[in-house]
Design a protein around this nucleic acid. Structure first.
Lengths: 246, 246
DNA sequence: GAGTGGTCTAGACCACCAG
DNA sequence: TGGTGGTCTAGACCACTCC
């Protein structure tokens, strides 16, 4: 099923690259179901001609969609919209982002908040200079009125100004973004363990209840350590969902 | 620090694309420490000239490295090797792959193995046709002589021939690859929970010990369901390590 | 054989960043 | 002001798939 003419407008005066205008428009049409799974796209040359673009530019737009798993390209066969199952997503977000998006009324209590020079062992683990000042804080997060997670974090103090008050109103990643800090990559480890008595009490769980524990280090483009966190979640109320691609 | 001449040989008679030859060579030089973090690459045009390539081809090679986080490109500034921390990896692998790579002597016992028509509820969950035959099997995996994980899996029988004997000798993903099945994407969920009495006994854990539980559905390019699994891991001996990018 | 995507070239102009 | 990457063009040839 070829398409005679997809309604894609191109604005050559826009600072947005042409390939990206096309890619975004197509992405939107796919996500909205306007181009159902299995739909075959016109071949690259015709498609480019229809939009008044060169083939490399058109190809780049499609390449963007291929990269995100929205579309499948096969030599000799053509290009078609992928099944919904094969659509990638998920990235470097925070619990607050996730809860806010699903409108589960996140609420945060800052249990403690200090600025201290980093300990030698932690400095080595984070790969930062010894003696650097760190924000160290612990937050208890609720969702839907129930305790959900206990989060301990470290953030180098020179990166931005933080306060307990701000951390009760906003997510950490939200504050980082507002300070112009762009996370590039994070490495995290997910484990399970039994709650200590103190943790159980804070999270309203039974003693030795199973917990999900996540440790994450996040870095920016230059490889600077931006954030290090150890979070524990009530196993009964939280899981990590992720998408892997190969 | 510019490089007068990087020792990169190009074989124009090879079926391997030129951009990929260059990208692979650079990737290897970075991974091996031959190009340390922070090293500045020559600009795209000079670099292309040195190798006898056009700029777009050179650019594509570098683009491959940028995509993988090995290198950082900045307009007006140049391109340099990223810090090791900002290197991405990890993908769609299996426990067996991981253990084999770290030579921890994986050993597998197949606890049961059947072929049955899929139940209606499972057919809906997996998005496969009702009545399809499924391999259903349960494996206990050891590493370093200790029980590590209990794995329950479902695989549509029409995809390949499986046997208990093969599953004791090889990992599931290894067998899938050998059958020419390429996984494109997987969605997984990671939770924590307490062990049941039977699970605790199989895994040599105490009753109600915390376990890591992972459920995964894996699909190929066309969105066909290839595999569905529910695995439980001893929390004391396993964790999920992953890299997120943004 | 006809049609598709995969690769490659040789140019061009622009936007950003440094000195 | 000069150098860098970011984008775009108009062609070319090849490899694969299907009929």
């Amino acid at each position: 099923m070829n398409h005679a003419a997809l309604p894609i407008q191109i604005d050559r005066s826009s600072p947005v690259p042409l390939y990206f205008q096309v890619a975004q428009r197509l992405e939107h049409m796919i996500e909205s179901g306007n181009l159902p799974a299995g739909t075959r796209l016109d071949n690259e040359i015709d498609f480019a001609d229809q939009l008044g673009l060169s083939r490399p530019t058109m190809r780049r737009a499609i390449g963007y969609l291929v990269e995100r798993g929205l579309v499948i390209r096969k030599r000799g066969l053509g290009t078609q919209v992928a099944h919904a199952k094969v659509r990638r997503q998920v990235g470097l977000t925070s619990l607050f982002d996730d809860l806010a998006k699903s409108s589960r009324g996140p609420h945060t209590t800052v249990l403690n908040f200090t600025v201290e020079p980093v300990s030698d062992s932690l400095a080595a683990e984070l790969g930062i200079e010894q003696g650097t000042d760190l924000y160290i804080f612990e937050r208890l997060r609720h969702a839907d009125g129930e305790p959900l997670a206990l989060m301990r974090n470290h953030v180098p103090a020179r990166l931005l100004r933080l306060s307990a008050a701000e951390l009760e109103r906003h997510g950490l990643y939200e504050l980082l973004r507002a300070a112009g800090i762009n996370l590039k990559i994070a490495k995290q480890s997910i484990r399970a363990r039994a709650a200590t008595a103190a943790e159980a009490s804070l999270l309203c769980e039974a003693r030795r209840a199973p917990l999900l524990e996540m440790t994450r280090s996040a870095y920016d483009e230059q490889g600077r350590t931006i954030e290090h966190g150890n979070h524990i979640y009530r196993a009964s109320r939280y899981s990590f969902d992720l998408t892997l691609t190969g």
